[in-house]
Amino acid sequence: MENEETFNWLDPFSSVDLGIADSADGVKQWAISNRDVIQPIKQVFNELVVAIDTSLNAVPPTLMLILLVLIAWQAAGSRTAIIVGVALTCLGLLSPDAWGLAMTTLAIVIAAVVVCFVIGLPLGILAAKNDTFEKMLRPVLDTMQTIPAFVYLVPVVMLVGIGNVSGVIVTIIFALPPLIRLTSLGIRGVNPSVVEAARAFGASPRQILFKVELPLATPTILAGVNQTIMLSLSMVVIASMISVKGLGNEVLRAMGRLDAGKAIVGGLGIVILAIVLDRISQGMGQSGRERGHRHWWQGGPVGLALRMTGPKNETTPPAAQATAKPET
């Protein structure tokens, strides 16, 4: 009521204070008071991330490099394998400890992407099946993608504490939306007449999902995974502010010391890692037709090994050979 005298119609917003910032700060208090509940869960996740990190770092760099090149060859063909090989060699040559830092970053990214996949796929399926849910989810996803990371950095740290786990959580918040969106898009994009045919031949909703919709949506879903990987990598510098180790931490420290050289080394490392992961995950997203309808085990190193070990027919996959037998 007192406000009425000072209320200015031309500038109403400066005279009204609803106290949103103060009440939102209550989130922080709530987070602090609930820390104890979170700690055991945090412990488990932390150990998981550390385990991935140590195992990646335990593998000698040369072996790891060969392994990644083989994976790239299998997933995306020999040309990508060469690119990946060259890129990883450059990464290793950036500085003596670049490789180890890259592996730590890779561990965080892997952990974040795995959790994103576990959360994102079911949510995406649900969003594809339910229009109301999709409508409710959309503003949430918009918020997750656009809200500055620094805003949720503080509550997350208050709740979980600094370290790998909050790094992963912060990464997930930013990297999850494209996977949900593209999963939903992929399933909605499945040819409705194929779904109708599956229904006409007696498939249950569950069978339609697993035998028709998910296989046909796979290229789109993998494009979502690719986007999630890229966004996870773009978060590593911000995540390093809450004491996540790795390449991001190098950039952050270099920034504090105005050490341009070190910043470039860390930054290039992130870029190279991004290129490698992008090429590999894009290769996995190719549809059957682009690959000329060969099964994954027919190409790449596995195909080569199979061809060398056994007298296999090159064009017919083992399964088809087995199924072609009951011909009468």
């Binding site: 109708e196 006409a200 031949f201 007696g202 498939a203 046909l216």
Partner: peptide, 21 residues
């Protein structure tokens, strides 16, 4: 109904509606 569709009724579509995968 699903049993009926799978065992009693076969359907052919104008758009073929074969599963590409």
């Amino acid at each position: 109904l699903r049993q009926l569709r799978a065992e009693k009724i076969g359907m052919v579509f104008q758009s073929m509606a074969l599963m590409p995968h």
